[in-house]
Design a binder for these strands. Structure first.
Length: 487
DNA sequence: AGCCGCGTTGTGGGT
DNA sequence: AACCCACAACGCGGC
């Protein structure tokens, strides 16, 4: 007669197969290929248990600077996700601790058959995922990951660009245009178990986090304008999509102050990916105020700055001319000073467009042909040879003949007297000699561009160039392929 | 969405 | 008719 001992029975129940879907960023049921893959796996494993998990990295909670509102957004999102999962006969299991330890525990105790997740390209996530992947590999457990956080697989785009991130807008467009159509979105998961759900062995464990647990100082919470969660997000999306005028005008953001929050991915603060060239700009309050107040002695520049100050709008090429003059062209003052003046004076100032355009024009980012220097004398002549624009905004110079109006300091004294405007008395002499200073500045730009940026920290996961053989998925073991892309 | 100097080519008037 | 010459227009490379 065989003895049945309770321990053995417990052991038997632990043998129930488990499929893990690891939620990280994509806290949603719709358009979630990794969740779909997890659910599909259940078909081949009768009575298997799905564990949708979220790991609260407690060390991160203690050290990562996240505001109260953002923590609340996460708590909201997880609660909404849990609610949706419960309606499908499952739930969210919130594990606590470092992800590697949590997976060690799970792999040891849950008879895991498959782990699925959505890829995350942030450095912290890549390092974490590589470690978890190794653990799973050692345990002989299959892992499936999917690119669904971004429209395209970043690795594929990188490969198309020789494994380098595009740093100009044109390059970015080129790369995307060769990538073809992004994959179609996936329908929401609406069913998990075909039969009645297996019993939850951890009914009272792995509960949702609370604000208190996350040390949220509730006095720092702002009004609850944007609750987190898939349900609320879809509601807002649906609502926006009914506003046809808003949508059709969205490409012209200058008409709409209430735009959707911009993505911050392009301006990542990661110090290893510094986008902005670090240039040794001068601090020169005299030059700065002369520029801002339209008394540089260059009529074309001063006329533009006068129009800006008086009327609040200047043509975009005029913006180019004065931005170049302030920064790399002549005065060698930081674009951030110019940004502040434009922000103060431009009726159409948009903080992101303004900052981006100043970086562009100063050749600090996106645009790098720094030897393309606008002349404060000849640039305006091409479209206004008689200087009518200058006459309008600088009436002191209105009587200068066309051949002197762009550089009145070259006019003979007789001409200056006849025009009723003595240079150096009635209108300033040029504060810099453009012909000389722009050459000096070219050398300074040259030096700034030659300066090697500080090397990336060691151990930072880095995209490496994949060899041609790796393109054939079937010939390369999954783990090797994964490492070649993520380690 | 630069500017300059240089060389080449084209043009028109004059000898 | 053939040639000279000044000048404009254009393309290119370097910064």
């Amino acid at each position: 007669m065989r003895k049945i001992n309770p321990q053995g029975r417990a052991q038997m129940s632990q043998k129930q197969a488990t499929v893990i879907h690891w939620f990280r960023k994509g806290l949603r049921l719709h358009d979630n290929p990794a969740l779909i893959a997890a659910v599909e796996k259940l078909d081949t494993l009768p009575s298997a248990h799905l564990r949708p998990i979220f790991i609260l990295d407690t060390k991160l909670v203690e050290t990562y600077r996240v505001g109260a509102n953002r923590w609340r957004f996460l708590v909201d999102s997880l609660a909404d996700l849990d609610k949706s999962l419960r309606s499908l006969g499952t739930r969210l299991y919130v594990l606590r601790g470092d992800p590697v330890s949590q997976f060690k525990f799970a792999l040891k105790n849950w008879n895991v058959k498959l782990i699925t997740y959505e890829t995350d390209t942030e450095p912290y996530a890549r390092k974490r995922d590589v470690e978890v992947f190794k653990l799973a590999e050692e345990a002989g457990v299959e892992v499936k990951y999917f690119f669904s956080h971004t429209l395209y697989e970043p690795i594929v785009l990188l490969r198309q660009n020789k494994s380098e991130a595009p740093k100009t807008y044109q390059k970015f467009l080129d790369v995307v245009s060769k990538a073809g159509e992004p994959p179609a979105s996936k329908v929401a998961v609406t069913e998990v178990y075909k039969q009645s759900p297996p019993k939850d062995p951890d009914k009272d464990k792995y509960q949702l986090p609370t604000l208190r647990e996350l040390h949220v100082d509730e006095s720092k919470l702002g009004p609850h304008l944007y609750p987190g969660g898939e349900t609320e997000a879809l509601r807002r999306l649906t609502q926006v999509m009914t506003r046809k005028t808003y949508i059709s005008n969205f490409e012209k953001p200058n008409t709409s102050p209430n735009s959707i929050e911009p993505s911050t991915t392009v301006l990542s603060p990661d110090p290893n990916l510094l986008i902005c060239k670090q240039i040794d700009w001068d601090v020169n309050p005299e030059y700065l105020s002369a520029w801002a107040e339209g008394r540089t002695g260059y009529p074309f520049i001063d006329a533009i700055m006068t129009q800006l100050r008086k009327e609040g709008w200047i043509h975009h090429l005029a913006r180019h001319a004065v931005a170049c003059f302030l920064t790399r062209g002549d005065l060698w003052i930081s674009w951030e000073e110019g940004q502040l003046v434009f922000e103060e004076l431009l009726l159409d100032a948009d903080v992101y467009l303004n900052a981006g355009n100043w970086m562009w024009l100063s050749a600090s980012a996106f645009f790098h042909q720094y030897y393309r220097v606008y002349s404060p004398i000849v640039f305006g002549k091409k479209t206004d040879p008689h200087g009518e624009y200058i006459r309008k905004y600088l009436p002191k110079l209105a009587k200068y003949p066309p051949n002197y109006i762009y550089e009145p300091w070259t006019a003979p004294m007789s001409v200056q007297k006849a025009a009723g405007c003595i240079i150096g008395t009635d209108y300033p002499k040029p504060i810099v000699d453009h012909a000389k200073i722009h050459k000096v500045n070219l050398q300074r730009m040259n030096a700034a561009y030659k300066k090697v940026p500080s090397p990336p920290k060691k151990n930072t996961p880095k995209f490496t160039r994949a060899s041609r053989e790796d393109d054939d998925d079937s010939s390369v073991p999954f783990a090797k392929k994964f490492r070649s892309e993520f380690c």
